[in-house]
Computed example of a mutant assay.
Amino acid sequence: MSSEQSSDKKKTNQFTILKDDSTDGHGGYGIGAISLENMSPVIIDPNEDRAFVDMGAMHARSEVERRVKFLPNKDEVPNGKLYWIVWVTVEKGENGPYFSGVCGSEIRVDRSIKRAYKSMPEHVTHMDKSLKGKIMIEHMDDHSKKLLKDFLADFEGGDYWNNSGNVLKEALPES
Rank of each mutant, 00 (worst) to 15 (best):
His139Gln: 14
Asn47Ile: 09
Pro78Trp: 08
Tyr98Arg: 05
Leu18Gly: 13
Val86Gly: 01
Ile135Tyr: 02
Ile113Arg: 07
Lys114Glu: 07
Pro173Gln: 09
Lys9Thr: 09
Gly80His: 00
Asp159His: 14
Lys146Arg: 06
Arg111His: 07
Leu148Asn: 02
Glu48Gly: 10
Ser164Pro: 04
Val167Asn: 14
Val42Glu: 00
Asp154Ser: 15
Met127Phe: 09
Leu168Gln: 00
Asp154Trp: 08
Gly93Asp: 04
Arg108Ser: 06
Lys146Gly: 04
Arg108Gly: 01
His123Ser: 11
His26Val: 07
Lys69Cys: 13
Gly25Gln: 05
Trp84Arg: 01
Met140Thr: 03
Ser2Trp: 09
Leu71Pro: 01
Cys103Phe: 03
Ala153Val: 04
Asp49Glu: 14
Phe15Glu: 00
Gly157Leu: 06
Trp84His: 03
Tyr83Leu: 06
Lys92Met: 13
Ile135Val: 15
Ile44Thr: 01
Val86Thr: 04
Gly96Arg: 04
Ser22His: 14
Lys81Arg: 15
Lys69Ala: 13
Asn38Asp: 09
Gln5Met: 15
Met58Asp: 03
Tyr160Ala: 03
Lys11Asn: 08
Trp87Cys: 02
Ala116Leu: 04
Met58His: 11
Gly28Gln: 12
Ile137Tyr: 05
Lys118Tyr: 13
Met39Cys: 11
Ile44Leu: 07
Pro72Arg: 09
Leu82Glu: 05
Asn47Trp: 06
Asp54Lys: 02
Gly104Tyr: 02
Glu138Arg: 08
Glu122Gly: 11
Phe52Cys: 07
Val124Leu: 14
His123Thr: 10
Glu4His: 15
Arg111Asp: 06
Leu36Tyr: 12
Glu4Ser: 15
Ser6Cys: 13
Val68Ala: 02
Asn95Met: 11
Val102Ala: 02
Ile34Trp: 11
Phe151His: 01
Ile31Leu: 15
Met127Arg: 02
Asp128Ser: 14
Ile34Lys: 12
Glu76Lys: 14
Asp20Ile: 08
Leu148Val: 07
